[in-house]
């Protein structure tokens, strides 16, 4: 019985990640899923819309809210699909959504859970992902030398 963790910074390209993930999982395995949720768009997005794009504050805020809501809805949609898929399989599933500012608990959990491997989907889109937090987790995983399969928007990174 293996224990695996799926970390989602990106909710894009998940079909190919799913294909890979479910080939690795076996009956009786436990899968932890941690979806990293933004509460605001990154600074770079603000820079483009306000400094370069000259959008007014309210217009830029409306836009940012819509971007964040879109990400939340896509996350919800994926997690719902995942639950439905796992319901027909002999797998134990634990899903949590984590604010991108609070990754310490995620790190603590990785250390405590004695995981067999981590699957992680990073984002290539620096306008809608917190690249600093992604790097923080990337460095952390390197440091603890855990087996990992990393993806960028569903495309597997070269080893």
């Amino acid at each position: 019985m293996g224990k695996y963790l799926l970390i989602l910074f990106s909710f894009a390209g998940l079909e190919s990640l799913n294909n890979f993930l479910f080939k690795k999982l076996e009956s009786g395995d436990k899968l932890f899923v941690r979806a990293i949720i933004l509460d605001a768009v990154p600074k770079l997005h603000e820079h483009l819309t306000s400094d370069v794009g000259f959008l007014g504050d309210k217009v830029a805020n409306d836009l940012e809210e819509s971007v964040v809501e879109g990400q939340h809805d896509n996350a919800e949609e994926y997690l719902k699909e995942l639950k439905e898929k796992v319901a027909n399989m002999d797998l134990e599933l634990s899903i949590k959504k984590i604010d991108h500012h609070h990754l310490d608990n995620l790190k603590k959990g990785i250390l405590e859970k004695e995981l067999d491997a981590v699957f992680i989907n990073f984002s290539n889109n620096k306008y809608i992902s917190d690249q600093i937090k992604e790097q923080e987790i990337r460095d952390f995983l390197e440091k603890i030398k855990i087996k990992q399969y990393s993806f960028h928007d569903g495309k597997k990174d070269k080893a």
Binding site: A12, T49, V52, G53, S123
Partner: peptide, 16 residues
């Protein structure tokens, strides 16, 4: 970075 409509559309995350 060419023009804000591109930046706005790109922030949807629906294309590369």
């Amino acid at each position: 970075m060419g023009t804000p409509p591109n930046a706005i559309a790109f922030s949807s995350g629906y294309y590369k």
